[in-house]
């Protein structure tokens, strides 16, 4: 109980500071997700019809996500130095696979009868993509973005190790001060606010899904 009380005091004592780190963290994740979603969806569209293209793209994204995160963050220090840029690049590479995979799956699982009738009515392949395939795949793609976001929100804490922004600050500080006063409080501040941020993102996606998906598609996917 003492621990919780002293943690609350720690948090209440520095609202501005915590808010600042949370916003930094959120901006990093949002920037990473926006660019990763853009790139993954484009790549997904480009490769979804070709078996070979699909396996190459998914393998590459698969390898990226299995790289140990500590190493991936460090690898880019020689190229981009410390701070925001290498953090962004590392997280971006991590974020690709779930979105790419769901884009490819979503576009390919559109009912062949729907595509047949679209073609039969004279929709060009571009019109079919924009008016039929993408809207139908969207709930699945959005699920990929959502999974990726939750994952990236957590991993982004490591960015602190290479001088990046965000709530990783408290985790790092807490670790180095373990056993010292307010060590645990710092660690828990990092953890709790990362979880809260992840929940906030999740709520955002739920709302986005409601706004962008017709009711007939809502039962499945996102």
């Amino acid at each position: 109980m003492d621990g919780i009380q002293s943690w609350v005091e720690f948090v209440v004592g520095r609202p501005g500071e915590i808010l600042g780190y949370t916003i930094e963290h959120a901006i990093l994740v949002a920037a990473v997700m926006a660019s990763a979603a853009f790139v993954s969806i484009l790549v997904g569209i480009a490769v979804h019809e070709s078996m070979a293209g699909r396996s190459v793209a998914l393998s590459v994204a698969g390898v990226l996500i299995t790289l140990p995160s500590l190493a991936l963050f460090a690898i880019f220090i020689p190229v981009f130095g410390l701070g925001w840029t290498p953090s962004f690049v590392a997280l971006f590479l991590y974020a690709l696979l779930p979105i790419l995979r769901n884009t490819v799956v979503g576009l390919n699982e559109v009912d062949p009868a729907v595509l047949e009738s679209a073609k039969g009515m004279g929709l060009s392949s571009r019109q079919t993509l924009v008016k039929v395939k993408l809207p139908l795949a969207w709930p699945v793609i959005l699920t990929g973005i959502r999974v990726s976001t939750l994952f990236i929100t957590g991993v982004a804490a490591i960015a602190k190790l290479i001088g990046g922004p965000g709530l990783g600050h408290y985790i790092r500080e807490g670790q180095t001060r373990l056993g010292l006063p307010l060590g645990m409080e710092r660690l828990w501040t990092g953890v709790v606010f990362i979880v809260l941020l992840a929940l906030a993102f999740d709520a955002f996606y739920l709302i986005l899904n409601r706004l962008t998906t017709p009711r007939s598609l809502r039962s499945r996917g996102g």
């Binding site: 729907v114 009738s117 598609l217």
Partner: peptide
Amino acid sequence: RRRIGYVIQQIGLFPH
């Protein structure tokens, strides 16, 4: 194809 109506067994209405 826009000048020819096309109906298939599975119908293929656009679900969205």
